[in-house]
């Protein structure tokens, strides 16, 4: 079964509300701080981006639905800080006390203002020089696995949306060899695999479609696919 974040194709969400062009303004200060705290603590090097996504989508469905966007981020961050041992539950509870602060073992890795530009510019590339041989070529027919669930961890992280499970598609291009989120999100290693852009006809995915020529493209790892 899918998790609550896997909402592609869901009915009932109502209209989309466009906003002015330009740089979106986050508005309230806490939203800005939530964004910045998440990025700054990422620089401590205790988790990867797949683990951050797993932490947010692992929120209880009721919390995921009621939390606004940056509330999900901050809740996911708090959970990750405890999971990775950076903070304790007592710390979050406020039981840590303020008098006994010897420097944290990770304090040497703190992101300094002068290093922000460099860290953001460096990013974190997901491609890797080697992995399993490419099994599919552009134009080839493939079918996605069904059900969409992670094959590595029960209820675990995957990037195959439920709406595209068991669907017939066609390889559009290969992006090279990329870290497999299903593994990396659970600390099971990067397990890089060929990654493909795969084209699906809208008629393959939905009972009613708006136009016979419409398509959806997904980026899918080799282990999500079999020849069709």
């Amino acid at each position: 079964m899918s998790r609550v974040h896997d909402m592609g194709g869901r009915f009932g969400d109502g209209p989309v509300s466009p906003e002015p062009q330009g740089i979106p303004q986050l508005g309230q200060e806490w939203q800005q701080r939530a964004l910045a705290l998440t990025l700054a603590t990422g620089a401590l090097g205790q988790w990867n981006i797949d683990m951050s996504r797993r932490a947010r989508e692992g929120l209880a469905p009721a919390d995921y639905a009621r939390f606004t966007y940056f509330e999900k981020w901050i809740a996911g961050l708090a959970d990750l800080l405890v999971e990775t041992g950076v903070l304790s539950r007592e710390d979050l509870r406020g039981d840590g006390g303020e008098g006994d602060e010897s420097p944290h073992t990770l304090a040497a890795r703190v992101l300094k203002a002068a290093d922000v530009a460099g860290v953001l510019a460096r990013g974190s590339a997901a491609d890797r020089p080697s992995g399993p041989a490419q099994a599919f070529v552009p134009g080839q027919a493939v079918r996605t696995r069904h059900p969409a669930d992670s094959q590595l961890v029960e209820g675990g992280h995957t990037r195959l949306p439920g709406y595209a499970a068991g669907a017939l598609g066609y390889v559009l291009r290969c992006h090279g060899t990329h870290v497999l989120p299903d593994s990396n999100a659970h600390g099971l290693g990067e397990a890089p695999e060929p990654l493909y852009a795969v084209r699906f006809k809208a008629t393959e995915l939905w009972a009613q479609t708006e136009h016979p020529g419409d398509e959806v493209i997904l980026d899918l790892w080799q282990s999500y696919l079999e020849p069709a």
Binding site: L35, L44, A113
Partner: peptide, 13 residues
């Protein structure tokens, strides 16, 4: 705990 620098947060924002 010395794990974030408020000035770095300002810079990110």
């Amino acid at each position: 705990k010395g794990l974030v620098d408020p000035a770095a947060l300002d810079e990110i924002i």
